[in-house]
Design a protein around this nucleic acid. Structure first.
Lengths: 237, 237
DNA sequence: CGCCGTATTGAGCGCTCTCAACGAGGGTGG
DNA sequence: CCACCCTCGTTGAGAGCGCTCAATACGGCG
């Protein structure tokens, strides 16, 4: 029997939530944020921005799910992250003075807050708290990306899918329970592009997981049945 | 004929140098650094620290080459980065309050500067310049890691090796020229673990590259012969 | 009912891995 | 100085995984 805490800790090394906590801002800062943000909505499949574009500002996802992906020169697509409620993003290329390295599109209907680049930089210059939060957050993300690079470089599809499902279970979580099954609502093509395999191979591996009692499906949604065995299969620890 | 600048820009999205520039520190800060650092030397193959260990401080590599790697539970090894002269590292897990996610060992004889954790944090709390440099640096590294995740997730060995050699050519650079051939001195096992393939497959692919006139070898060292075709083969743009 | 996008299943091929043996080169001790 | 050993590199053969192509099923919507 694997310790729940150990599983949780291991999994935290492979995905991140936004490290920005609203509670850590002062009233002045909150007022500034409120004053300088506007609301954006996106329909399912709508594009937020494209890789190579100029990073115009910072976004906070309040509702819905986004996919962050890169399109390669052979037209293959890799989904790198799924953002869910609460994620703050778009500031990284501003800080490093680069263009957007990724494209972002809505998986489902989304609501976001938007803050223009210059206002974000103004806030950052005045807020030590924000600066420190970003440093901590970016550093953790470095760890996560390092770990995932390792997984993508070496692992077999079964292992990658097992890990992907554990990550997605967190992203699609609606309740607060530990290792309760979320409804993972992602079409097969997106899931294949997230795992980094072909659609056909993904379907076959999902069937294998079903046979082994690791997951079950209802319509297109996926539910994890056996966290422990899925965790073992992912071979991250 | 591919534009040199385009190649250079594309390549910069796949590796990073330390974003910390000594020139941006004030005299006070430089004095503080000088006062609170000590020198460490490492023999070839010596371990600097192990993944899971407590991050005791920050390092600056002054001489030599380091390999940054993770050891997996099936005993496979993935080399994630090669650090060369000038690289500053070790601060990330301090900032995110984590244990070391990686192990680091010397590829060849190395000399480093070491600053204890508490002094680094003291310096950071006083230096806006350092804080801003770290934010910019970490943000760029996020881009690099994202791009590399994509490569590892999808690409064939030929493409991954082509890219790896272009990156290593920069890491092993001694002169300042653009796209001049460095002597890439890395044993085959390390190279295989960096590319993310088996030793045998690596050797075969190197031979293929030799036949095609992309590289040549002298002893164990590798020299790039045809940057343009290697770049095209890497399919990063 | 038919259409279109998505999902599933089947077959065959090619790439990459593993296992195994052999070769080269440097270092050590007789 | 030579013989041996140990490490590292190279080559060969065979198996299995994962990809591609192709055909078929499903499901929502007009």
């Amino acid at each position: 029997m694997i310790n729940i805490d150990r599983m949780k800790q291991a999994l935290n090394r492979f995905h991140f939530y936004s490290g920005i906590k609203i509670g850590l801002f002062s009233n002045d800062e909150l007022e500034f944020i409120d004053k300088h943000t506007s609301t954006i909505t996106l329909e399912r499949k709508a594009l937020l921005f494209k890789q190579g574009s100029y990073p115009g500002g910072v976004y906070i996802l309040n509702k819905g799910k986004l996919k962050v992906y890169q399109l390669n020169y052979d037209n293959s697509l890799q989904i790198l992250f799924i953002y869910s409620q609460g994620e703050v993003f778009g500031y990284r290329p501003i800080l490093s003075n680069e263009y957007q390295p990724v494209s972002i599109a809505a998986i489902e209907y989304c609501e976001l807050l938007y803050m223009e680049r210059s206002h974000f930089l103004e806030l950052l210059s005045k807020s030590v708290s924000l600066s420190n939060q970003l440093l901590a957050s970016l550093s953790h993300e470095f760890t996560v990306l390092t770990n995932r690079m390792n997984v993508f470089a070496q692992r077999k599809i079964k292992e990658k899918l097992a890990l992907a499902l554990l990550i997605l279970n967190e992203k699609f979580r609606t309740s607060n329970g530990e290792f309760t099954a979320s409804e993972i609502k992602l079409n097969r093509t997106d899931l294949a592009n997230f795992v980094g395999t072909s659609l056909e191979n993904l379907v076959r591996t999902l069937n294998y997981f079903k046979e082994k009692g690791l997951i079950k499906t209802k319509g297109k949604s996926i539910f994890i049945e056996n966290f422990e065995n899925l965790f073992i299969l992912s071979a991250i620890e």
